[in-house]
Design a protein around this nucleic acid. Structure first.
Lengths: 210, 210
DNA sequence: TCCATTCTGGACATACAGTCCAGACATGGA
DNA sequence: TCCATGTCTGGACTGTATGTCCAGAATGGA
C-alpha cells in the first residue's frame, strides 16, 4: 500500500456504503481527476486497481444532469454487460474539484429478469375466437387475486387507492357491462355495494376531491 | 430556502448521483448528526424535509460493517415497504464527523419480481389478460349477419324458426348476460322486445308449443 | 385520545327486465 | 271476398336490479 490519500479517507465511507447496498452488482470508483488515475475502487468489475489510468476523457462531452452530476448514462463492458453509470465531481472545502466518483451498476441481471417477464406477458394467444367470456365471475376473482398477489397484501387490507385501481381494471375489462356484476365485485372486494358504486363514480369523474 | 450549508454543497453531487442512478426507488438523506436534523434529502419516500428531526439514534447500536459504514440493514416503512439501508459517517478534512449519509432502497418491487419469478414453475398461469369482449354489439350483428348470409334471406324475412335459431346462438354466446342486450338484439332482428322475450322463453322451455 | 376520512347498511328513487294482453297483421283456405 | 289461424306488436304493468343518499359505525393518523 501507499500513503493513504486524504481524499480516500474522506470519501470512502460514502463509497463503501453504496458498494455494500448494491451488493455485487455495483462498482464504485473514486478517481483523481487531475492525474486521471484511480484512487480507490470497491467491487471492481474489471481488473482496475488504484493507480490505473481512469480514462475519464468522455465525461467532458456529457451534459450534466445537475450541478457536478452526470448521468445515468449507458456503458458497455467488453464482455457485453450493460452498465448504468453516474458520475459526480467531488469538491473540497474550498470548492476546488478534488475527485470524481463513478458508480457503475451492472444491469444485466435486471435486464434478463425484465426480458423474462416481458416475454412472459407479451406473446399471448392470438385469440382463437372465444365467443363471449362465459364465466366472468371467475375473471373477477382472477383480476383481484392477481392484484393482491403483486401487491403482497390480502384483500381485507387493500386501501382506497388499491380498490380504485382494481375497479379501474375491472371496468376496463368491461365487467360492469354485465348484469349483476356490481354485487359480485363488491363481495369479492370485501366492500359494500355502496362503496363500490361510490368508487366507480369517482373513477368516472376524475376531477378532484375536496 | 435557507443559507446553503457547506456540507450540503460538498456532498450533494455524490448524493444526487446515487439518487439519479437508483431512480425513484432510493431515498438519499444527508443528516446533521450533531443536531439530529435532516440537512438535505433526494427522492423522499416519506414526507421528511430539511430541518426535520433525523431520528438516527439507533445507529449507535449497530455494528459498523467497516470504518464509519453501517448496514445494509432492514427498515420497515409504515405502509409496509421494506427498505435496505446503509449509512456512512462523513468527516471533514480534519477527521471530525460532519454529517451522516443514509441511502434507503425500496426493495418492494425487487421482492415482488423475485417472488413472481420464484413462483414461476409451480403455480397456474396468471392469464395474459385477454380482457373481456368489449364491443358485444358488433358481435350481435356478426352473428345475425352470418346467419342471414348462410340463409340467403334478409333479416326482415326471417321466419319464426330462423329467429329462434339466431337467439339460441346469441344466448349460447352469453349475450344476454349483458345489460341492455335484449333491446339491441330486438332492433338488430327487426323484431319487438316482446317478441324476443317470447322467443327466449320458448327456448328455455322446449317442452311443447301452445 | 381525538379528529377526519372512509365505509357501511338500509331507505329510497329510478331504470330495466320480463310478462301480459288486446289488437294489428299476414297468410291461406273456402 | 271473407274468415280462421297463428304470429307479431306496442303499450301497460310488475317485480327486480341498479344507482343514490345519508346517518352512524369503523378506521386510521396525529
Amino acid at each position: 500500500m501507499e500513503i493513504p490519500d486524504p481524499r480516500v479517507a474522506m470519501w470512502s465511507p460514502a463509497c463503501q456504503a453504496v458498494a455494500l447496498l448494491l451488493g455485487p452488482y455495483a462498482e464504485v470508483v473514486l478517481h483523481d481527476a487531475g492525474r486521471d488515475r484511480v484512487l480507490a475502487i470497491w467491487n471492481p468489475m474489471t481488473r482496475r486497481e488504484p493507480g490505473d489510468p481512469s480514462l475519464l476523457g468522455e465525461l467532458d462531452q456529457l451534459q450534466p444532469s445537475a450541478h457536478d452530476v452526470f448521468g445515468p448514462y449507458e456503458k458497455l463492458l467488453a464482455d457485453g454487460r450493460r452498465l448504468s453509470s453516474v458520475s459526480a465531481v467531488l469538491r473540497d472545502a474550498d470548492g476546488q474539484p478534488s475527485a470524481v466518483l463513478c458508480i457503475n451498476l451492472d444491469r444485466t441481471p435486471l435486464d434478463q429478469a425484465a426480458a423474462l417477464l416481458a416475454g412472459f406477458a407479451a406473446p399471448s394467444v392470438p385469440r382463437p375466437e372465444p365467443l363471449f367470456e362465459q364465466d366472468w365471475t371467475e375473471r373477477v376473482h382472477q383480476v383481484i387475486g392477481s392484484y393482491v398477489r403483486t401487491r403482497g397484501r390480502p384483500v381485507e387490507r387493500l386501501g382506497r387507492e388499491d380498490r380504485l385501481a382494481v375497479l379501474a381494471e375491472l371496468d376496463q375489462a368491461g365487467i360492469f357491462a354485465v348484469r349483476r356484476a356490481v354485487p359480485v365485485v363488491a363481495g369479492a372486494l370485501r366492500a359494500s355495494r355502496s362503496t363500490v358504486y361510490a368508487l366507480l363514480a369517482e373513477l368516472k369523474a376524475p376531477r378532484n376531491q375536496p
